[in-house]
Design a binder for these strands. Structure first.
Lengths: 139, 139
DNA sequence: TATCTAGTTTATAATAATTCTAAACTAGAA
DNA sequence: TTCTAGTTTAGAATTATTATAAACTAGATA
């Protein structure tokens, strides 16, 4: 995770992914990555948080575009749920989730908390991109 | 999995879940469960298949209601993907999936093909409802 | 068997999430 | 400073799903 006061690191990071460091993207970077704990969100929640204070607004379309761009660039990870809404995670390291069916909250499970002793061979011509475990919990 | 030529079994099954065996539900039962291999689908694909031939139509709303009712009753299992569309599976036994990012196709992974040697304890007051592994594959 | 009612189906409207569009804007190369 | 491809934006369009409320029906009861 990137922790930084100044924006140089983000500028570099964005450039290295062929993303121009616009003020919107930098604002979103700062919000998402200037934190110690990982952050789970949907576009809706991100939009609210980014546009909360009276400062210049970032349009919803840009929030969508940016989340999509950051996900492709590997800065964000899309989370699997059964809800018809996309969830993202700033923790891109291999890890898993609890999904609380009541509160609809996601909690990280550190990768070391789950051990797979057997994994299938992928179909011919395909390779494994990632493996995600979701544990659904309820009261 | 239920395999049957006649409808008596479905009628019983539905009754045991407090679902009236209407002709729409029975038609959907027959379509979904009168088969040897498990079946993955979305409401959209199910609607197309059910209403393909010129026979009396089942409305889209009923397809939604029925899939929801069958899922609650435990006849169907909702599958986790990152798409904003719900996927269902007639295979309700504990099992996992390959999700092909290219073709967007789901393939079953038999539960015996994946072994977990370590699983975390759920948060206090919560219990594990199920555990699903999705392996994303690509070319 | 006829009647009744709660459960069900249906067409349609409403909502929600996301994607598209095309005009205005801007980073940064020349 | 100029230019252009990349970016942002508001709003429209699309897609999946849920809600609504009127018509229908399974099956219990008289």
């Amino acid at each position: 995770m990137i922790i930084s006061d100044n924006l140089k690191m983000y500028v570099q990071k964005l450039r290295s992914s062929n993303l121009r460091p616009t003020k919107q993207r930098l604002k979103i970077c700062k919000f998402l990555f200037d934190r110690k704990k990982t952050f789970h969100f949907t576009v809706e929640t991100l939009n609210k948080k980014i546009n909360k204070s009276g400062t210049s607004k970032v349009s919803l379309a840009t929030i969508y575009n940016t989340v999509e761009a950051f996900t492709s660039a590997g800065y964000l990870k899309e989370i699997l749920t059964s809800k018809n809404k996309s969830y993202y995670d700033t923790n891109i390291k291999s890890h898993h989730h609890f999904y609380d069916e009541g509160s609809k909250e996601l909690t990280d499970i550190h990768y070391s908390q789950i051990k797979l002793s057997k994994v299938p061979v992928p179909p011919k011509g395909k390779k494994i991109k990632n493996l995600e475990v979701v544990i659904r919990i309820q009261k």
